[in-house]
C-alpha cells in the first residue's frame, strides 16, 4: 500500500495551494498570511470589497463573451475546414494538410507584431475583436483533431446522402456536424479555457479598463492592491478565486472532453 500513500501525499501537495487560496481569501487583511488552513477569523466581506473596488462583473462578462466568441469561431471554422480535408480528394491535399500541421510550430512571437499592426490598421485595437476574430479561420490543432474524427466515420454515409441529392454544405451541417459533436465539444472547451486564461492578447490590445477580460483585470488588481500598491492582499485573493472558479466548474462539466482532448494530442506522438 506504499503507492497509495505516495499518491495521497502527492494529491495533498497539489491541493494545498487551492485550500490556502480559498481560505486566505476569506480572512481579514491582517490574517491573510496567518498560519493554518482555516478561514478564521471569517471575512466573506472580502468578496464584496473586491466587487466594489474593481469592475469584476464587467470583466467576468467580458471574459464570457470573448470566450464564447473565440471558442464558437474556432470550432465552427475548424470543423468546416476539417471536413474539406476529410471528405474531398484533390491533388496536393496531403501537402496542404502538412502545411496546416506545420503552422503549429510557429511561435506566437513571430506573428505577434505584424498581427498587431493589422488590427491597428483596421482601427480595431482597444476593442475586443482581435481577441477572437483571428479564430474565424480555423486552427491547426483543432483541424487535426476534427479531421481524425471525421475520417473515422463510414464514407458510405456521405455517399448515400450525395445520391439522395444532398449538397456539400448539407453533408457537413446535417450529417457530419451532429456525428462529430464529442470532438466539437473538445475543441470548444479547450479554446474557451485558452481564451479565459489568456493575458498576452488583452495586454497587447486593450487599454480601456471596461473592456478588460478577467486575467487582464486581475493583473491590474495585483498591481494596484499587491506589493507595489496598497497591500490589500485579500482583494487580490478574492479576485483570483473569482477568476478560477468558473474554470473549475467548466472542468467538472466537461471533464471527459478535456481528458480526451489531451490524450488524443498525446497519442498523436
Amino acid at each position: 500500500m506504499l503507492f497509495v500513500a505516495a499518491l495521497v501525499g502527492a494529491a495533498v501537495i497539489f491541493m494545498l495551494p487551492f485550500v490556502w487560496l480559498i481560505s486566505a481569501s476569506l480572512r481579514p487583511r491582517e490574517y491573510v498570511f496567518a498560519p493554518g488552513f482555516l478561514p478564521v477569523p471569517f471575512a466573506p466581506e472580502n468578496y464584496a470589497e473586491a466587487w466594489r473596488a474593481v469592475p469584476l462583473v464587467t470583466w467576468l462578462l467580458n471574459s464570457l463573451v470573448v470566450g464564447v466568441a473565440a471558442a464558437a469561431a474556432v470550432t465552427l471554422s475548424s470543423a468546416w475546414v476539417a471536413f474539406g480535408f476529410a471528405y474531398f480528394r484533390f491533388p496536393g491535399r496531403n501537402l496542404l494538410f502538412g502545411l496546416v500541421l506545420a503552422t503549429m510550430m510557429l511561435p506566437f512571437a513571430v506573428t505577434m507584431i505584424p498581427t498587431y499592426l493589422i488590427w491597428s490598421e483596421l482601427r480595431l485595437t482597444d476593442t475586443q475583436v482581435p481577441l477572437w476574430a483571428g479564430n474565424l479561420f480555423g486552427s491547426a490543432f483543432y483541424i487535426f483533431l476534427l479531421r481524425q474524427f471525421l475520417l473515422s466515420l463510414p464514407r458510405e454515409y456521405f455517399e448515400a446522402a450525395r445520391m439522395d441529392g444532398a449538397s456539400y454544405p448539407q453533408l457537413f451541417w446535417k450529417l457530419a456536424f451532429p456525428l462529430i459533436r464529442p470532438a466539437l465539444l473538445v475543441a470548444f472547451v479547450f479554446e474557451f479555457k485558452a481564451s479565459w486564461t489568456d493575458l498576452l492578447k488583452p495586454l497587447i490590445y486593450l487599454r480601456d479598463e471596461h473592456l478588460y477580460t478577467l486575467p487582464r483585470g486581475l493583473k491590474v488588481v495585483l498591481d494596484r492592491f499587491g506589493y507595489g500598491g496598497e497591500q490589500q492582499w485579500e482583494v487580490v485573493l478574492a479576485g483570483s478565486v473569482i477568476s478560477t472558479v468558473p474554470m473549475i466548474i467548466l472542468f467538472f462539466l466537461a471533464q471527459r472532453h478535456f481528458i480526451e482532448g489531451i490524450a488524443t494530442g498525446g497519442r498523436k506522438g
Binding site: 479555457k193 486564461t197 485573493l237 483570483s240 474554470m247
Partner: peptide, 13 residues
C-alpha cells in the same frame, strides 16, 4: 485549469 495570472499571484504569496 487555473488561469495563469491567478497561478502567478498564488505562488507570489
Amino acid at each position: 485549469m487555473t488561469p495563469a495570472v491567478a497561478v502567478g499571484i498564488l505562488f507570489l504569496l
